[in-house]
């Protein structure tokens, strides 16, 4: 069962790139305060400006960066930082496995680029595209690059702003910009619920993630997601639901 690679040939690569950049725009806007925070907190933790920017430029992982910077500031050892990084980043194993049918047949430079850019946001937008009714299972490399690269550029520019402006921007995390993330993901997930097993998967994941968050379970996100996926799959199998 291999999925076909469908590149949109009616439009030029740059048109497809901008289409991707537009699709991820709400998430790019939502990430700006977190990028600024990543820059200013890195500086605050004792990284020099170049190191602070390098964090966003080569690590490029919001949650892991913010946590690691906090640990560096607290003087935690390298081993603990790396284990925490591994726990936070472990959901990417799931993303790369899910994208394997689409991305692994591409040439090396595309694999490396899209792999490097494979964030929650890129996965979310590509997953939304895969579900579209008119072009099922389509995958356009230039569209994906537009999503991933535009998001990368915004993240790095926001980090630069954070490094320059430093602590002059008050209470960024109380602006409620995380609602933009919730709104976008709800808008992506809701239309995908077209079978009972997906509804069950979503409900299990929802309850589990909230419970994990309340009890501050490490890697709660991954635990909740795998619970949802497992229950959804089992339900589909038990009821003989058609995919």
């Amino acid at each position: 069962m291999s999925l076909p690679l469908i590149d949109d040939l009616k439009h030029t690569p740059s048109q497809r790139w901008f289409k991707g950049a537009l699709a991820v725009l709400p998430l790019s806007i939502a990430v700006i305060p977190w990028g600024i925070l990543a820059g200013s907190l890195a500086l605050d933790a004792g990284l020099n400006p170049l190191e602070s920017q390098a964090m966003s430029a080569i690590v490029f992982a919001g949650a892991a960066q913010l946590v690691a910077v906090g640990m560096i500031k607290a003087g935690v050892g390298l081993g603990s930082i790396l284990i925490t990084t591994l726990l936070i980043t472990s959901r990417h194993f799931l993303y790369s496995m899910a994208m394997r049918p689409n991305i692994s047949p591409l040439p090396l430079k595309w694999r490396l680029t899209l792999g490097f850019l494979l964030t929650d946001e890129l996965f979310a937008i590509l997953a939304a595209g895969k579900q579209s009714k008119n072009k099922p299972q389509s995958f356009d490399r230039w569209y994906a690059l537009g999503v991933g690269l535009s998001f990368y550029l915004v993240w790095n520019m926001a980090t630069l702003v954070g490094i320059i402006a430093g602590s002059q921007i008050p209470n960024l995390d109380s602006w409620g910009l995380d609602f933009a993330i919730a709104a976008t993901f709800i808008a992506i997930v809701t239309p995908q619920i077209n079978r009972p097993s997906i509804l069950i998967c979503v409900l299990v994941s929802l309850v589990a993630s909230v419970v994990c968050e309340l009890f501050q379970v490490p890697s709660g996100l991954l635990i909740a997601a795998i619970m949802g996926m497992t229950v959804g799959t089992l339900y589909a199998k038990a009821t003989g639901e058609k995919p």
């Binding site: 496995m97 995380d178 609602f179 998967c201 979503v202 996100l221 799959t233």
Partner: peptide, 29 residues
């Protein structure tokens, strides 16, 4: 079977991200 399991990854992961943002404030439901 694995691909079938993975087809649930997007709704599951994305929900596990937005759920806590919506339902939890200051560590409380």
């Amino acid at each position: 079977a694995t691909l079938r399991f993975l087809s649930y990854s997007a709704p599951a992961v994305l929900t596990a991200i937005w759920g806590p943002i919506v339902f939890v404030s200051e560590h409380e439901l």
